[in-house]
Amino acid sequence: MDELTPIHGNDPKPVDESKGLDCLPVDLIVEILTKLPPKILCRCRCVSKSWYSLLTHDVEFMSRHVELSKRRPLLLVRRYLSDGISGSEKIAVELTSIDMQGDITDKFQKVIDGPVHTFLSCGPLSILCCMDTLYLCNPGIRQVVRVPRRSNSRLYNVGFGYLPVSKEYKIVHMFYHSDAGNGKMGCEIFSFRQDGGVKAGAWRTVGDCPFIAWTDEQPVCVNGIIYWALSSGWKNRSILSFDMENEEFGSISYPIHESKDYSFLEYVGLMEALCVVGFSASSMDIWVLKNNRGFKTWAMEYSIDLFPFCPKFLVPSYDQSEEILVHMEQRDLFCYNLKSRKARRVEYYRAMKNYNKPCLYYASMVSVLGHGSGS
Results as ranks from 00 to 15, higher is better:
8 H>Q: 15
9 G>H: 10
9 G>T: 09
10 N>Y: 15
14 P>Q: 04
15 V>Q: 13
16 D>A: 05
17 E>D: 11
19 K>H: 01
22 D>T: 07
26 V>G: 03
29 I>H: 06
37 P>A: 09
41 L>H: 03
47 V>P: 14
52 Y>C: 14
55 L>S: 05
55 L>K: 07
58 D>K: 05
61 F>K: 02
62 M>E: 12
62 M>L: 14
63 S>I: 12
74 L>E: 10
75 L>K: 00
75 L>H: 04
86 S>A: 10
90 K>W: 04
90 K>D: 09
94 E>I: 04
95 L>R: 02
96 T>V: 14
99 D>H: 07
106 D>H: 00
113 D>E: 15
113 D>F: 09
114 G>T: 01
116 V>P: 00
118 T>Q: 14
123 G>I: 03
123 G>N: 11
124 P>D: 02
125 L>D: 05
125 L>W: 10
130 C>W: 02
135 Y>T: 01
137 C>N: 00
141 I>G: 09
143 Q>C: 06
144 V>P: 01
145 V>P: 07
147 V>M: 02
153 S>Y: 10
154 R>P: 08
157 N>L: 10
159 G>N: 01
163 L>F: 11
163 L>R: 06
166 S>H: 12
168 E>R: 10
171 I>E: 08
174 M>E: 00
176 Y>K: 12
180 A>N: 15
180 A>Q: 15
182 N>R: 06
183 G>E: 05
184 K>F: 10
184 K>R: 15
185 M>S: 07
189 I>H: 01
191 S>M: 06
193 R>S: 10
193 R>P: 03
195 D>T: 11
195 D>S: 13
204 R>E: 07
210 P>Q: 06
211 F>H: 11
217 E>S: 11
217 E>P: 15
220 V>Y: 04
225 I>W: 13
230 L>A: 04
234 W>A: 06
237 R>T: 00
242 F>H: 05
247 E>A: 03
247 E>M: 03
254 Y>R: 12
255 P>I: 00
258 E>R: 14
258 E>I: 05
260 K>E: 09
261 D>K: 04
261 D>P: 00
262 Y>L: 01
262 Y>P: 10
264 F>G: 04
265 L>A: 04
265 L>H: 12
266 E>W: 12
269 G>D: 06
270 L>T: 03
271 M>Y: 13
273 A>T: 11
274 L>K: 11
277 V>L: 01
277 V>T: 02
287 W>L: 02
290 K>Y: 11
293 R>L: 12
298 W>A: 01
302 Y>I: 04
303 S>W: 00
305 D>R: 13
307 F>W: 08
310 C>A: 10
314 L>F: 01
316 P>C: 00
317 S>C: 09
318 Y>P: 14
323 E>Q: 13
324 I>A: 00
329 E>N: 14
331 R>D: 13
332 D>G: 14
333 L>A: 09
333 L>N: 08
339 K>R: 12
339 K>G: 08
340 S>D: 13
341 R>P: 04
341 R>I: 06
343 A>I: 03
344 R>E: 05
347 E>F: 13
348 Y>T: 07
349 Y>K: 03
352 M>G: 08
356 N>T: 13
356 N>C: 10
359 C>D: 07
361 Y>S: 03
362 Y>H: 08
367 S>G: 08
367 S>A: 07
369 L>N: 13
372 G>T: 02
373 S>I: 03
